[in-house]
Design a protein around this nucleic acid. Structure first.
Lengths: 353, 353
DNA sequence: TTTCATCAGTTAAACGTTTAACTATCGTTC
DNA sequence: GAACGATAGTTAAACGTTTAACTGATGAAA
């Protein structure tokens, strides 16, 4: 493969001149420039970014580690991060940790060894990233969507409590629901705690007594959603509405509901967490909390870039608020209007094969 | 950041020795090795893969360009490719072309400049990758899922005709359907042509007359699926079954069906293309053609590695057969059995937040 | 005519590794 | 004790760039 030397020889100039025309770092006369450009054309020269990176000590690459690339949230986040990064002249090296702390650690190693300029990490659930030793002091890092305490690393997360409050409050105020249940993943989990808090707050503000029987752990599984329906039914009374804090559980819940002949939203109102592109197509179209994918991506990259540019961010936590999309599963009126919406465009492109 | 020199100084050995203990390329006495290992520990040395790549002239990185990372097929393919690559000591740089030929070209440039050792490309729909000039002669490349003719590049694709034949034949033979429709994307499109062929073959073999009124273009859109229902209904007769060759169209079709009060599978049997993890959760659980994601990923990486190791592959086309998963939408009997299946595991992990 | 700034290009060191070629030491063997 | 092979480490060039420092030519000002 041709090098800058080959180009220089062919154009009968020095490598410095070639470098300068490529990078526009110094004025080069039209005549010489043309010679160089021709030589590049003729030799099929492709600049070697590896050599460049070595010399300038930066790779213009950022590393991204996500738990599951197949989660629409993360594939969306990746798409946005990559777009944003590319617009700023950066590439992204992405790794899939499978939520495995060991793989996660290995991947951090790998990315550091490849000298990425910064790291955006969705920490794995049982992350054991050492507080020091693995990642050099002061290295640009940003946590995404999940925060880890005790690190001097900024994170950008979503406002779980507010989202939960909003959804539950909506059920109470707009649909006059008095018995609202909530299906959490695992109660002790940080995310669940925050969502639980928002739930309690909404009850409190509407002077509804808290009833722990209506709080169910679904362990984020389909089966958990199925069981939740049974649990609620066996309590003798069935709540008139429920806020389900996970997509999997929601699917299980809906599935079992249908099986038992309980109709939504007639018999029970539902709001889910994590609005996806499937939501409007469900039966009934699902009302759900939408995570601000774009903002999540944008802010994390920005926080990273600021660090790359030298700013210290400490353990700053940036909290992004969520929007709840109300469709039919909570009892709202909603029209699909697919023809004018962008669903079509989305599906056409994304699911076209 | 510490370099190999710092380590060498601290351990009071040469850089060559340090290199040898890191890479295990030469015997080093226990005593010296320990000194080096300690020095590495003490200096917090992280090997610089950039420098290494420059020297050994390979980056142990492969480039992957997909059309849409959010398409579950491609995020799945990516996950598998990354896993497979990592097991062979390779990283993967992935780019999202958005099916835009210009972005695609730019990204190929970028990856080449970053000296990836090989390239796996899902060509964009209107790909204008130049036959020569952009990618150096003999550079390891593999096309994935879509093939481009006229290039000396191997590809791995799925057997569309066979899949289509199988699905349609199933409708005819198992469910005794005489009028089977097919919804294609665009008729002139290569994929559609192949699927169309499989459809015709199935009819022919079962001595059913071909009727062009039952072949509908849905342009791979949700709206196209909606229209297809209306078109078929307006023909006066409604087919008893239909093979829908795209997820988006299938969603639109199902949506409109429900709206018109046509029941599936009682009134109409449906088989879709592209089985996803949503299929079993649909109402009714969807029968669909499943693309062999793992094989697709594995074979493409293998083909690439063989080229990296020096083999010439020409324009070899590797065709992978698909499996049709028969659930309820075609009229088959099917039991969810979620508790024992791996759906739960999948959803638990992937959609947990 | 001298001085000196500007211009357009060159020289060569440096980035952090790898690795072929080399060296010094120590046993063996005859 | 000479010759030699094995062992364990070192030396230094090379990979393909960038870029500070340098050079030589040109022309304007004093």
């Amino acid at each position: 493969m041709a090098t800058i030397k080959d180009v220089a020889n062919r154009a009968e100039v020095s490598t410095a001149t070639v470098s300068h025309v490529i990078n526009k770092t110094k004025f080069v006369s039209q005549e010489v420039r043309d010679k160089v450009l021709n030589a590049i054309e003729e030799t099929g020269y492709i600049p070697n970014n590896i050599a460049r990176s070595l010399k300038v000590n930066q790779t213009k690459t950022i590393g991204l580690i996500v738990a599951y690339i197949e989660n629409p949230i993360y594939s969306g986040v990746f798409r946005e991060i990559e777009k944003y990064a590319r617009n700023h002249g950066y590439s992204v090296l992405i790794c899939n940790s499978n939520d495995d702390p060991d793989i996660e650690e290995e991947q951090i190693q790998l990315l550091l060894t490849n000298r990425v300029d910064g790291l955006i990490i969705v920490p794995s659930k049982n992350s054991k990233i050492p507080k020091k030793g693995l990642i050099p002091e002061g290295f640009p890092v940003c946590f995404l969507n999940r925060q880890l305490s005790g690190y001097s690393v900024p994170s950008v997360v979503i406002e779980n409590k507010q989202a939960s409050y909003e959804a539950v409050n909506h059920l109470i105020q707009k649909h006059n629901q008095k018995e609202v249940g909530i299906i959490l993943g695992e109660r002790h989990n940080q995310l669940s705690k925050e969502r639980h808090e928002g739930y309690r707050l909404a009850l409190l503000e509407n002077s509804i007594e808290y009833n722990d029987d209506l709080v169910i752990e679904g362990y984020s599984t389909f089966q958990g959603g199925v069981s939740a329906v049974r649990d609620l039914a066996s309590e003798g009374y069935f709540p008139d509405s429920v806020f389900i804090t996970g997509t999997t559980m929601m699917l299980g819940f809906m599935f079992e509901l249908k099986k038992m002949g309980i109709s939504c939203p007639a018999d029970i109102s539902i709001i889910g967490f994590s609005d996806t592109n499937m939501s409007p197509l469900m039966d009934p179209p699902l009302s759900a909390v939408a995570q601000p994918i774009n903002k999540l991506a944008e802010r994390s990259v920005e926080l990273l870039f600021e660090q790359i540019d030298g700013a210290k961010k400490g353990d700053l936590v940036e909290v992004l608020s969520c929007k709840v999309n109300y469709r039919m599963s909570c009892g709202c009126h909603w029209e699909p209007k697919f023809s004018q919406s962008n669903y079509d465009k989305f599906y056409e492109s994304v699911y076209s094969e």
